[in-house]
């Protein structure tokens, strides 16, 4: 049974047992430097220092956000 996370508006399915356990694990699997990212889980901001200790559970909505050029 696949498990789902909604990441930046896209439903991502993970085979059972393969869902990342934390924001840290999710970022490293996506090859994203966690020092440059801010995360929200179900609308709550997760501090960067808590990326590794915040458990992910199926069905959550995750936003991964970073700075880009802007005026």
């Amino acid at each position: 049974m696949a498990q789902t996370l909604k990441i930046n508006g896209t439903e991502k399915q993970f085979p059972d047992g393969e869902m990342p356990a934390s924001i840290s694990e999710l970022l490293s699997r996506m090859d994203i430097d966690q020092a440059t990212v801010v995360a929200e889980i179900d609308g709550t901001i997760i501090e960067r220092k808590k990326f590794s200790e915040t458990d992910l559970t199926p069905g959550q909505t995750i936003e991964l956000i970073r700075f880009v050029g802007g005026g």
Binding site: I7, N8, G9, T10, K12, M30, D31, I32, D33, T36, V37, V38, E63, L64, I65, R66, F67, V68, G69, G70, G71
Partner: peptide
């Protein structure tokens, strides 16, 4: 600077 979603499909320029 602005804030935008990380592009989860391709590489991100930091």
């Amino acid at each position: 600077v602005a804030l935008r979603r990380v592009d989860i499909e391709s590489e991100n320029d930091d």
